[in-house]
């Protein structure tokens, strides 16, 4: 038992290196995924059938072909075609494209869920379609899409574990190393707990974003109120009071 913790203490710097790699992949992959999601999500609702078809094809392709296949394609095939990519870059690329395709559907669906009246009001105010999307529709769609994006982010974090297949020393790789000096149960429990804590922190961050986004739409309390310890009823009361 003690030797387990001793081994853990000795391995801690390496494990933290692994956590750092995992975090870089998660954040980099998520940023790339968001960029792809917004681009494809907007293209997938264009009227032009060529544009829409192109976006749909990309979305279905990256959703349908499996993350591991995409990772291996970038890692094993591209070098043979003369394109050498850094493993970290390959990891971020595969994660970003795969989860970006999933998130594109979330973006598209959320934009479509913004009530019809909001679109009509922008027409009545003669806004251009760019103004309408940027200033009215997207800010409202954003609040709708956060819960699904939050789920996808956790999937993405879990998905980063596959980069150990392409020789990257991420958290999974380091935990596998730790197993040699400790017993199996100990090493993997530590690994799972670290992943769980990371996932939990990401969930909290996304929840905060959601509270903030909803507050901007005049629904629910502000982030500061949500984080304060006293019971947060005031935000709702203000809304109800005005109804009298």
């Amino acid at each position: 038992m003690d030797s387990n913790f001793e081994a853990l203490g000795a391995a801690l710097p390496r494990i933290l290196d692994g956590v750092w790699i995992t975090l870089q992949l998660t954040v980099g992959g998520a940023l790339l995924a968001m960029l792809i999601a917004v681009t494809l999500g907007l293209l997938a609702r264009q009227e032009n059938i060529l544009v829409r078809g192109f976006a749909r094809a990309i979305i279905e392709f990256f959703r349908g072909t499996s993350l591991v296949v995409q990772l291996f394609w970038f890692f094993f095939v591209l070098p043979q075609l003369g394109v050498e990519l850094d493993a970290m870059f390959v990891g971020i690329l595969a994660l970003g494209l795969n989860y970006g395709a999933y998130a594109a559907e979330v973006v598209r669906g959320s934009i479509n869920s913004v009530p019809q009246g909001q679109w009509e009001a922008t027409t009545a105010l003669s806004m251009t379609s760019a103004q309408r999307m940027r200033r009215v529709i997207f800010p409202q769609a954003w609040a709708l899409m956060i819960p699904s994006l939050s789920n996808l982010l956790i999937h993405l974090l879990k998905g980063t574990a596959i980069v150990s297949f392409i020789t990257m020393a991420d958290l999974t790789f380091r935990v596998d190393q730790l197993r040699i000096d400790t017993d199996t149960f100990f090493a993997y429990t530590v690994g799972l707990i670290i992943y769980f804590v990371l996932a939990y922190i990401l969930t909290l961050v996304m929840n905060m974003l959601e509270v903030q986004a909803k507050h901007r739409l005049g629904r629910g309390e502000s982030l500061r109120e949500a984080l304060s310890l006293r019971s947060p009823d005031t935000g709702v009361d203000a809304g109800e009071g005005a109804r009298s």
């Binding site: 956790i154 974090l157 879990k158 998905g159 980063t160 574990a161 596959i162 150990s164 999974t172 935990v175 596998d176 197993r179 199996t184 149960f185 993997y188 690994g191 799972l192 992943y195 769980f196 996932a199 939990y200 969930t203």
Partner: peptide, 19 residues
């Protein structure tokens, strides 16, 4: 449930494999 859901399958596979 949350613990299983929020941790990678790959690590769970390795865990069960060695255990």
């Amino acid at each position: 449930i949350d613990f299983i859901r929020m941790t990678p399958i790959v690590v769970q596979l390795l865990f069960a494999y060695y255990a």
